[in-house]
Nucleic acid binder design. Sequence first.
DNA 1: GACACATATGAACGAGTATTCATATGTTCA
DNA 2: TGAACATATGAATACTCGTTCATATGTGTC
Lengths: 123, 123
Amino acid sequence: MSSYEDNIENIKCNVIHQDVVDSVSNKMIELDTAGELAEFFKVFGDSTRLRILYALSLSEMCVCDIAAVLGTSQSAISHQLKVLRQMRLVKYRRDGKVIYYSHDDEHITEIFRKGLEHINETK
Amino acid sequence: MSSYEDNIENIKCNVIHQDVVDSVSNKMIELDTAGELAEFFKVFGDSTRLRILYALSLSEMCVCDIAAVLGTSQSAISHQLKVLRQMRLVKYRRDGKVIYYSHDDEHITEIFRKGLEHINETK
DNA sequence: GACACATATGAACGAGTATTCATATGTTCA
DNA sequence: TGAACATATGAATACTCGTTCATATGTGTC
């Protein structure tokens, strides 16, 4: 049993193909852009938000109605609508006490469709 | 100051438009499906995974090369590749000691493109 | 102005998760 | 067989995030 502390530095990961690494690095997405993109997709990564977006693809709706359809508390819906608003995925209009939400992005439906295609294919 | 404990039940959220709620409920996405879809999009909600997927869209790569391009530890990359594998987003082939990863889904590029369109429009 | 109601929001709590560290597995080569 | 290396993985830690609870804000009505 030899002391492995001496050469612990050797137990690491080396670049195998420098040409591939260089080529990919040049065309690589910016770290900031990847961050923004991740933030965007993160919004779709929660079933409550997903269902809100789906419901709104069917009809403009007020907060109480969304809560009723999803069977979720008004507060939870409201918190999530704030996220969707900040991501510019939904817009709203006020009519008296009631606030109506609707989609604010034409990509949502397309992204949904691609996602559904994926999970249906891999079953 | 009256006791509000008596009618605290009244402070709640009521359905405003029963017709809309019924109509949307009928066409609503299944809870299970929404869950699966959320799990799928959750994968795109992390910048490390996003950058791995982006890198792989440019070229098939081994784990060490991916780590080099991203400037991340081999272990972190390996953990995330496991997630991507389980989601059937990447596949791999072994060549001796080296394992090469590549895309396993044609929807990835499309979904990326839609996401980028969104964040570019809302700037 | 007082009340009812639709919606928003801050704080707290619990659940989930990305990374790190240490180590295991699997393969090549001598 | 044993050293070297590419990759995988379990456990621990730190951080993020969704919901709940309590309450605030804003609007219409009497």
